[in-house]
Write a protein that binds this DNA or RNA. Sequence first.
DNA 1: TTGTTAAACGGAGTGACTCTCCGCATATAT
DNA 2: ATATATGCGGAGAGTCACTCCGTTTAACAA
Lengths: 193, 193
Amino acid sequence: MTDEKKPRRRPRSDGQRNRENLLKVAKAAFTAGEVDIPLDEVARRAGVGIGTLYRHFPNRDALIEAVYRAELDSLADAAPILAAQHPPVEALRAWMRLFVDYIAAKLVIAPALNGLAGGTGALYAQSGTVLQDAIEKLMAAAVASGDISADIEPVDLLRALAGVSNYAAGPGWETSAKRLVDILIAGSRAPAS
Amino acid sequence: MTDEKKPRRRPRSDGQRNRENLLKVAKAAFTAGEVDIPLDEVARRAGVGIGTLYRHFPNRDALIEAVYRAELDSLADAAPILAAQHPPVEALRAWMRLFVDYIAAKLVIAPALNGLAGGTGALYAQSGTVLQDAIEKLMAAAVASGDISADIEPVDLLRALAGVSNYAAGPGWETSAKRLVDILIAGSRAPAS
DNA sequence: TTGTTAAACGGAGTGACTCTCCGCATATAT
DNA sequence: ATATATGCGGAGAGTCACTCCGTTTAACAA
């Protein structure tokens, strides 16, 4: 019933190496825009058989999720740091801008995120929770300090941000995206009651 | 060089019928959530051969675009009407809410829009222009009346809206999306100079 | 070292899907 | 009624995701 520990053996070193290699190759391909790269090709570039790829990642989505989970986590980790360095509203703004930067640097690729089966949720439901937690805490602080209105759903802002990443195209989109961040912040301000 | 007119013959009636049938079937499937439906199946349901489908729509994306173009157009058409009925800012707000309604009614399906190859642009570059025109005019009016700030990019709002449609999941998302509309409007207001 | 064994590997094979090609059918115009 | 451009249909080629299972190898014990 409870989780038994069966540490019979140490995990095999070649297994871990291959797994990391696959992730590295996949990330390189995805960030290079080859979102639709065949999985055979990923395996080939990583110097492993297709069977090995599928043992580590049961399907395409699993691979994509694994590639981005680390990025998502590091984005989430930045939240408490920013919170410590800035006043609440500015921390929120800074984090949202960082979100945009991540997209700009192709560290997080929206098409890949959205391309997931069923479109939505699948990935954000699992990996996305860390982002939700991050923004929720930032907003809670800003609400507590009386800077932003209490009846704003954190998720809404995240959605808007994610939306921008979908349509990240054309020159100047990045500054345009940061302008949107300002709009969102301004729109979330508590009325000067 | 210029577009020659060669109206040798009237288009064949069966051709038009089949085309409409395909669109009807495809729309039904897409709105029912069967975004990944095989094209053979679409052809079968429409009672035509696969070859016929591919003559009318050279690839999957073309079909998706054709299905939604009408919806997109009607959404765009609503803009001037709303503009005539409401003061500028309210017209803008109403239109953005209408956008959300369309998504809610599954008349426009975000997963399908985003699932397009290459992720971005492909569809919005063509069909999306009508939406851009629509919101640009609404915003121009609101800027002219001094209600909203001049340095807001219309596309940004569209992006945010589209983003929300991606993550349209879970109960209450709709009201949450409309709240986002209000945030965006509030954030776009011109400073009471 | 050597033997044992569980863990991991590789890649041929399967089924599903997209898209092409081209001979056949039919609506339109004369 | 005849001619012909227009549209139809579906077999088949090419690609891809994912499975299966015989073979290899790293980890551990003796």
